[in-house]
């Protein structure tokens, strides 16, 4: 299967799936290409006659397409993708842009239950205030959702804030913990084991009513600093 367009590689994954890898000068570009393809596949899959699309699972620069083996084979999928490529060019980008949601997530930085600020300060040689200032200063993009329901991998942290995972993972990171590792940041949707450095707590649930996650791949997120009493009020309100 020869690559084309923004797809740099296609590889088989078992009898009933293929994986697409995307190209781009940056991870951001490759991820955008992935989101565009996903968006298009979703709109095609919702139409009659395309029920062979069973599941699409995007990640940083890759997209897994699982198909119904009884209806089609990988050659059929490949040819369909080639045909759709031309429409991807023609497709009005507005549609896809509209699907992108923006979120501002409040964070009580340095909350006792989730505070590795000293360690992050040591790893990055930044003052605590600078760490918070950097973390709240920029827009992050959700590159992928996975690992656990509603766990959104966001990036990319500025190089200055890049720091390695903990030497040994914690058995329990509290729900709502805002964390960083390498050049990524995330909010833990529920209590779980984890090896990321914790900056504070976010009171907004990452998985809402009816198990619908707040964040989806492609969404834009900014963090804002709140005080302990604002955090408490959030729960009270």
């Amino acid at each position: 299967m020869q690559p084309f367009g923004s797809i740099r590689q296609l590889v088989p994954v078992g009898a009933d799936a293929i994986m697409l890898y995307f190209s781009g000068d940056s991870l951001e570009q490759a991820n955008s290409a992935c989101q565009q393809w996903l968006h298009m596949l979703d709109s095609f899959a919702s139409k009659a006659g395309n029920s062979w699309v069973v599941e699409c699972v995007p990640s940083y620069d890759s997209l897994l397409i699982v198909f119904d083996i009884e209806q089609v084979d990988s050659h059929f999928v490949y040819h369909s993708l080639q045909q759709w490529q031309t429409r991807l060019h023609n497709q009005n980008n507005d549609d896809y842009q509209k699907a992108i949601k923006r979120h501002t997530l409040p964070v009580w930085y340095g909350a006792k239950a989730a505070n590795d600020l000293d360690e992050v300060s040591r790893k990055t040689s930044l003052q605590k205030e600078d760490i918070i200032a950097l973390h709240t200063s920029m827009e992050f993009k959700v590159y992928a959702v996975g690992f656990a329901p509603g766990f959104a991998y966001m990036g990319e942290l500025p190089k200055a804030l890049q720091c390695a995972r903990l030497a040994s993972p914690r058995k329990k990171v509290p729900k709502g913990a805002v964390a960083i590792a390498d050049r990524q940041t995330a909010v833990y949707p529920s209590d779980s084991p984890g090896g990321w450095n914790l900056l504070g707590l976010c009171p907004v649930p990452m998985v809402g009513e009816n198990n619908i996650p707040l964040l989806s791949a492609g969404d834009i997120v900014t963090f804002s600093s709140i005080t302990e009493s604002e955090f408490v009020d959030y729960h009270a309100g």
């Binding site: 078992g14 799936a17 992928a144």
Partner: peptide
């Protein structure tokens, strides 16, 4: 490598 989707039976 970057994290990516894991299919059944991988």
């Amino acid at each position: 490598m970057r994290s990516e989707a894991i299919h059944i039976g991988a």
